[in-house]
Structures are given as structure tokens and as C-alpha cells.
Design a protein around this nucleic acid. Structure first.
Length: 147
DNA sequence: GCCAACGTTGGC
DNA sequence: GCCAACGTTGGC
């Protein structure tokens, strides 16, 4: 799950402990959020920064949450076409698990993984939420340990 | 349903 | 700041 650290960082989550992952306004990403199960683990990825990197780990603690920002006129994520009866945007609540002592930069991920196996390293992929294969996740854990 | 124009993301 | 690669919008 990506976030620009200037907007919301792993440090913010570490302080806050739990947050609603709001503001996702892309249908494909939303669909992935909708499929998430309680107890699922998720990597926190810092995007649009130097260097872009996987910086930590989170756990999904609540699913199928109606993103409240879609009804908030003062929010950047306000959606005029969304109604409480028919909300367009759902998301999850995540809990801080771990902040990696050594973040895994995108450059390293590109060296280690094939774009066909891991969407993060695929050129042009702008999805802010994407699935990670179990085998890839395991290798990422190994990398954070050996770094 | 097509597609041009426009907006956004995000690495570099 | 640039720009490739998307996604979305809206006229037709």
C-alpha cells in the first residue's frame, strides 16, 4: 500500500497506531481493498520521495469501511457522486506492526524481482494498492533481515 | 462504444 | 521540473 510520506508516512502510522486508509480514488485499487481480509498483512510503501521504498509492515484490522472523506466537502477526496446510501469508496483500517530498520528501496526491489511477479517494479504501474504474492512477501522479509 | 483531450501518478 | 504511462471525461 503506497503513500506519499509528505501526506502520510510510516512515522505517522507508528504514532497513530491505527488508521483508516482513506483517499484511494481508483477503482482497481478499491477492488483490491474490498477483497482484503482481517488479519492480512500489508507492506507500507513510500512513494514520490527519495528514495521510494518499502518502509514497514501493517496489519488489516477492519475491512469494508466506507471511506468517510468521500462525503467531506472540505476534503481533497470529496466525491460529489457518492452518497451515504450508495458509497463508491470502501477501504480498510490498518494497524502499525513494524518499521523496517533498513527500508527496502525500489532500486533493490528491481534488482531482486521480476516485473511479472511483482507489480511494484513494473514500469508504468501507478496502482496505490496492489497484491503481493506469498513467495515475494517471504523474500522481502528475508531481505529486511539480511540487510 | 470510440477516442481525443485532459488530469494524475510517480520515477527520474 | 520533465515526462511516460496510465485513468477519466465527455462529445459524438
Amino acid at each position: 500500500m503506497k503513500s506519499e510520506p509528505s501526506a502520510y508516512s510510516i512515522e505517522d502510522l507508528q504514532k497513530e497506531k491505527i488508521t483508516i486508509w482513506d483517499g484511494v480514488r481508483n477503482y482497481q485499487a478499491r477492488n483490491i481493498l474490498r477483497e482484503m481480509k482481517k488479519g492480512d498483512l500489508a507492506f507500507f510503501y513510500h512513494s514520490n520521495c527519495k528514495p521510494p521504498a518499502i518502509v514497514g509492515l501493517m496489519e488489516v484490522v477492519e475491512t469494508n469501511i466506507v471511506d468517510p472523506t468521500q462525503f467531506d466537502r472540505t476534503s481533497d477526496y470529496f466525491d460529489v457522486k457518492s452518497t451515504p446510501e450508495k458509497p463508491r469508496w470502501h477501504t480498510v483500517k490498518v494497524k502499525f506492526k513494524e518499521r523496517f530498520a533498513q527500508p527496502l528501496p525500489l532500486e533493490t526491489l528491481k534488482q531482486k524481482f521480476n516485473p511479472d511477479d511483482f507489480l511494484v517494479v513494473k514500469k508504468g504501474n501507478r496502482l496505490s494498492v496492489m497484491p503481493v504474492k506469498n513467495t515475494i512477501a517471504q523474500e522481502i522479509f528475508n531481505l529486511t533481515r539480511t540487510f
